[in-house]
Amino acid sequence: MSAGRIGQPSRLRPRLHRWGAALDRVGLQAVFYGNTLRSVKDAVIHYRIEILRLIAEMGLGVGALAVIGGTVVIVAFLTLSVGALVAVIGYNQFSQVGVEALTGFASAYFNVRLLAPLIAGVALAATIGAGATAQLGAMRINEEIDALEVMGIRAVAFLASSRLLAGIIVVVPLYCVAILSSFLAARVGTTTGYGQSTGVYDHYFTTFLNPGDVLRSFVLAVTMAVVIMLIHTYYGFNAGGGPAGVGEAVGRAVRTSLVAATLMTMFVSLALYGQSGDFNFAG
């Protein structure tokens, strides 16, 4: 009995140590996020040129990515694929009960409320976010961030807050491209691929498209951009362990931001539409 009582605390101690380390990491992330948000004003005042450079880089890409049009083309391609899936699945499911004319409703309802924001968040994390983590991680292991701090430059404002602002600004036109691409793919797939009348499709699409839902989806996309950029800048800013450490930081950041984007989409959708659904029957 005495041996069991002595061994029990020794087995519990490593578990408590892991929990304490996890809480420490959460606390460090919260402090970094607070510093980044607080330094937004400094970035706007002192580093406007850097913000403009990052906006151009995030939107159009650099190097090989710029050849295909950068993040804009990637987001458009992803949402085109999702819009086409809405046309295929929606038309076939509705046709089984004889109401295939409601495919326009599926595009106006599901693209705006769920699919377009989620796919835009995934694209943002996989392109702009991952690029920010890799850039900051490379600067960290090459001691460039330390050099900036020695020169008196506000490293958090210059590197993290500027990328946060650039990501927020870039996500607005990117989301416009995303939602229009999803609408276009669903319409073309339904009217061209399945031969539905354009008048029927447009009637049900405009009937069920709620402008308030479009505005709320933009707010959701901007909020996801804030969360994703905060996560990616944290992991890049605190990367270590050489090139392998930078790759690990990118993987951790993408994984965390994808989970955060999915949870945000789910909880915000439940909060906004979980009670009534808010159908728009006007028109």
Rank of each mutant, 00 (worst) to 15 (best):
A160E: 05
V172K: 12
G193Q: 04
L159E: 13
I168L: 15
A178C: 03
G195C: 06
A186M: 10
P173K: 12
L174K: 12
A186C: 10
L174G: 09
G195H: 00
S181K: 08
Y194V: 04
V171Y: 07
I169E: 06
L180T: 15
T190G: 09
V172L: 13
T192K: 11
L159M: 13
A178K: 05
V171C: 14
L184T: 12
V188N: 07
A185R: 06
Q196H: 08
V170H: 09
A185M: 07
V188E: 14
T191E: 15
Q196N: 02
A178Y: 04
I168M: 14
Y175R: 03
A185V: 07
T191D: 07
A186F: 05
A178P: 06
A178D: 08
C176N: 13
G193C: 02
A185L: 03
L165G: 07
L180M: 15
A186D: 14
A166N: 00
L184Q: 04
F183I: 09
S197D: 06
S197W: 00
L174C: 08
Y194W: 02
L174R: 10
S161N: 02
G189I: 03
R163Q: 00
S181Y: 03
S182D: 07
Y175L: 00
L159Y: 05
Q196F: 00
L184M: 11
L184N: 08
P173G: 09
A160F: 04
V171G: 06
L165V: 09
L174S: 05
I179G: 04
V171L: 12
R187F: 15
I169S: 11
P173I: 06
V177Y: 11
V171E: 09
S182I: 00
A178H: 05
V172P: 07
S182M: 03
A166M: 00
T191F: 05
A166S: 08
L184W: 11
Y194I: 05
Q196I: 05
S162V: 01
V188F: 10
I179S: 02
A186K: 09
S182G: 10
R187C: 13
R163E: 00
A178E: 04
L184V: 10
I169A: 15
G193R: 03
Y175F: 10
S182Y: 01
C176A: 15
V188P: 01
I179N: 05
V172A: 15
Y175G: 01
L184D: 06
Q196C: 04
A166K: 03
G167V: 01
R187G: 14
V170Q: 11
S161P: 01
Q196L: 13
S181L: 06
T190S: 13
V177S: 12
V177D: 13
I168E: 08
S162Y: 04
S181R: 10
A178V: 03
P173V: 04
Q196R: 12
V171I: 15
